[in-house]
Amino acid sequence: MSEKEIKNLEAIFEAKIARDEKIEPKDWMPEKYRKTHIRQMSQHAHSEIVGMLPEGNWITRAPSLRRKVALLAKVQDEAGHGLYLYSATETLGISREELYEQLHSGKAKYSSIFNYPTITWADIGAIGWLVDGAAIINQVPLCSTSFGPYARAMVRVCKEESFHQRQGYEIMLTLANGTPEQKEMAQDALNRWWWPSLMMFGPTDDMSTHTEQSMKWKLKRKTNDELRQQFIDQTVPQANILGLSIPDPDLKWNEERGHYDFGPINWDEFWQVVKGHGPCNKERLQTRVDAWEEGEWVRDAAMAYAEKKAERKVKQAG
């Protein structure tokens, strides 16, 4: 294809997206669109399955049967969401095994928030409330993103996730209304998860590299800073209801802006975790690698069995 022809196809393609039409897997798409989507969607999928680990850490220790089934169901949903997202990514011509390989080799990223440890039960509440809360803000706009399979996966994910944040907030509420020890546990969790949650929206707009392109392709509807502000504005009143305090001395309502002002984010910490030096980066990745490698003989067995069975069927028919 000549350069002119490609330019022409690109123009048609961009116009289609601008008209809010969806792109489907077999449609022509610029190579960059494909690559960007593989990167973002698989990163999203990886985040779901690595995200199972910090919460899974408390399944065996959940304090009541009701909490245990809710947590199991939530962590299971995350596996489901990872599965939907991997499947959507596979429509772009890359296999789940290849995507795993990218995760396991460290080439692919996942959300840094999951590199923090869950050290008390209140962390399960804080993750549901804050981390899922932030995730929902990031994810809802993706339900109308330009790539059809991604948008459809996100519709399902968002629908299923609606219970996750409520589950987390209910845990926090129970702790906040509990004994002084429980309330302290809740406050401690908020203290530790607040700043990493704010970092989930990514670097500030002036530092962010992909924003313009992502806006055009509807991978993003608002900038990092706008989303972060939205999260803070909606979360502060929720913290007030809990009677917990946000660990930011600079946090103050700004009448003029109609938003909360907040203190500086520690971006050194953000980059440290992104670059693989967070408290749990190594463990999380190793756990995924172990599960995959220890599962290899199981997957092989199922495949060998399926082949034998298919052969037998052919023989019987013959």
């Binding site: 199972m52 680990l53 299971q76 599962g295 290899e296």
Partner: peptide, 13 residues
Amino acid sequence: GELTGHGPTLEVD
């Protein structure tokens, strides 16, 4: 429940 998150494939998990 110990297996959740550590299964041989997502589907089996």
